[in-house]
Amino acid sequence: MGVTQIRMKVNGVTESLDVEPWASLLDTLRERLGLTGTKKGCDQGACGACTVLADGVRINACLALAVQYDGSEITTVEGVDHPLQQAFVRHDGFQCGYCTPGQICSAIGMLAEHAAGMPSAVGASGLTEDEIRERMSGNLCRCGAYNGILDAIKEVL
């Protein structure tokens, strides 16, 4: 039960890593690559704080084994340069900031999903406020900054 070598492009940089197969993508990013912007809130897919983009698709890094993402392109908040970030600041889309990287990565993934025609349970045409709320419901914010996050996302539509 040794280590497996994987290669991932993380925020544009190719990383070659020996990982134990049971290491999550989240722990690999945080503990091995020092990319602590991606947060651990529950480690069980119940809060969304660990959301990253894998080949442009938002996923929960806590339930992803790093070995399964061999050959993938991972984008974490450290690799994000998006108008959403300033919009979050303007609309106070956070308080403590711990869920924020996940919210931002999730919102970027959400906008891409919507552009690609992905439906949601709301079933409205266009990104209405209810659509955004439903599509962002995989990211908990215990400080309750939901209004600000909504406004930040609306600003960049």
Partner: peptide, 21 residues
């Protein structure tokens, strides 16, 4: 006023207790 620490929080640079190497 915008938060002083906002830039750190939206870029992932803000470091929390489990993040000091």
């Amino acid at each position: 006023a915008d938060r002083f620490d906002a830039p750190e929080k939206v870029t992932g640079r803000a470091k929390y207790a489990a993040e000091f190497p």
